[in-house]
Design a protein around this nucleic acid. Sequence first.
DNA 1: ATGAAAGCGCTAACAA
DNA 2: TTGTTAGCGCTTTCAT
Lengths: 333, 333
Amino acid sequence: MMKPTIYDIARIAEVSTATVSKVLNNNGRISEKTRKRILKIMEDLQYQPNVLASAMKGKFTYQIALLIPDIDNPIYAQYLKHIEERGQGFGFSIVMCSTDNNPEKEARHVSLMLQKRVDGFIIASKFKNEELLNKLLKDKVPVVLFAYEKPELLIDSVTADDFLGGIAATDHLVSLGHRRIAMIAEDSYSGKERLRGYMTALRSAGIEPDESLVIYSGAGLEDAEETGGRLLDVKERPSAIFGCNDIMAVGAVRAARKRGLAVPDELSVIGFDNTALCTVSHPELTSISMPVSDLGQKVMEVIVDKIEGKDKIKQRIRLFPELVVRGSTAQKR
Amino acid sequence: MMKPTIYDIARIAEVSTATVSKVLNNNGRISEKTRKRILKIMEDLQYQPNVLASAMKGKFTYQIALLIPDIDNPIYAQYLKHIEERGQGFGFSIVMCSTDNNPEKEARHVSLMLQKRVDGFIIASKFKNEELLNKLLKDKVPVVLFAYEKPELLIDSVTADDFLGGIAATDHLVSLGHRRIAMIAEDSYSGKERLRGYMTALRSAGIEPDESLVIYSGAGLEDAEETGGRLLDVKERPSAIFGCNDIMAVGAVRAARKRGLAVPDELSVIGFDNTALCTVSHPELTSISMPVSDLGQKVMEVIVDKIEGKDKIKQRIRLFPELVVRGSTAQKR
DNA sequence: ATGAAAGCGCTAACAA
DNA sequence: TTGTTAGCGCTTTCAT
């Protein structure tokens, strides 16, 4: 009635546990005959190896901790979904760790996950706690940064190219004839990259960036709307707003609506991330689409390689985002 | 340099590992003096017990598998967030299992999680696979259904009272003078309960439900919009639509807009779940708010009790949802 | 109040 | 090709 162990299998097959273990792990040389026999018995008994026991011998737990800052932003739900899905393909499960961008929570999660012996960490969080990160690296714990980089640290990462995305968004607006383009920015690495893209695109279009047109906002929709409002309540109003992510863009749309400004006729708005918000919002939001599925695949590849000790090289992988035009942006008139 | 074990602690404290283990687990009688000493040494060495090893001796892994059908619906992201948060309070981590309402994925996840020796399951998924569920119950694996019930099975559950929510939504519409009230339904237990609430509320308002006003929809926004359209493209058009969840409601709003119908002036729309979609949508969606945080707390309480073998009683816990009025519903005119 | 020792289920070095 | 055996780090019974 108890779950069968390798001992049960060994006894029935009249071999030693070592032999059973070997067929389980496909190593050592075992005659095809006994291998078949053992496999058959496992099948019959519905034997399932105890992951804990093998993990204790230095094998894997097949668990990866995923640190996520803010699941209220649907892009993170997307990331989670795709990472989990890809993880399945590699036999790894995802342990969710919400951090709310709170360094203490980050530290607690990491410590707990270490105790639980997860095989590695995917960190999508801001991760203020640099000391902790360094400790992980020093201890050779597999870590990959996701949707987020720390340029000053030598650490693997998988992200979309936010800088290029920022350029694409801005170029789109410029190509529609906009010159006074505002941005609702966000204090995060990717946010800053998007901002840098915005600056670069403006300059190469011969537009000198106007500092007053860039305002940093908190993460919530309320904040975003308020920030959007501040951008709009000036004498020389921008004709377009680039929201650092879709929430920011929706905030801008709402601010515009509250002021009786028609989107996109009087104000173009573009978002970033191409989340479900884009189609829920009205008018539908033009945005920059993240290759979520590919990002998920890549990050799993990288972390699994690290876990299995295959790759020694550090790498920063950047995938390309893509413009998706919808109804919130239009020719300036 | 290796992580310290109880052996290290024992050696330094000049006691046996048994003693160390006892202070670790707060059992057996240990003199205050040695306890203090041992604790101090643990502190100094930053000792962290190996969860795997203790789990092997029949203790817990402190991990709970959470089966979720569809993270694209923001309400599930909310559930996840709150369950994870509450789990932290109990020292339990959440292993994410996306099922996409696919019975095979359900089975794969359960089997894998069993191998990894999670302590219990929170199932928020449809879980078509009744056989599997019964097997879990038979094997005394702690299982709690969440946001979802199986009335025919004797199994603990924590849900919001969808029936009452359905009544509340419908009553609200009725109180605004609507009599032809349509519903975009969903094929799930909670969906059916909401529908039942709708029926009940209509009848007690003296309105005979009209079969043609209830249409089942797929889960996506596209489906919802299409379904909303079908509801609207009839001679005797409803003056209000009750969307089985916020996505359905947004679909209805879009369908209305496409037909030049003003919401809420010509059509009232109410959703369910009170997700972030409500404030992103325009007009903002009236909806039924789920007590997500309390639900998360309750489900953790129940599952932890079961894991610790404390509660023998089966229970169905239902929490009350609440109407949140916003701009998408108005007096019929 | 404390310790010796067996064992959870598995792996891997070493023997045979 | 297969088996013996010593652990991995911890808990727990039974002595002392």
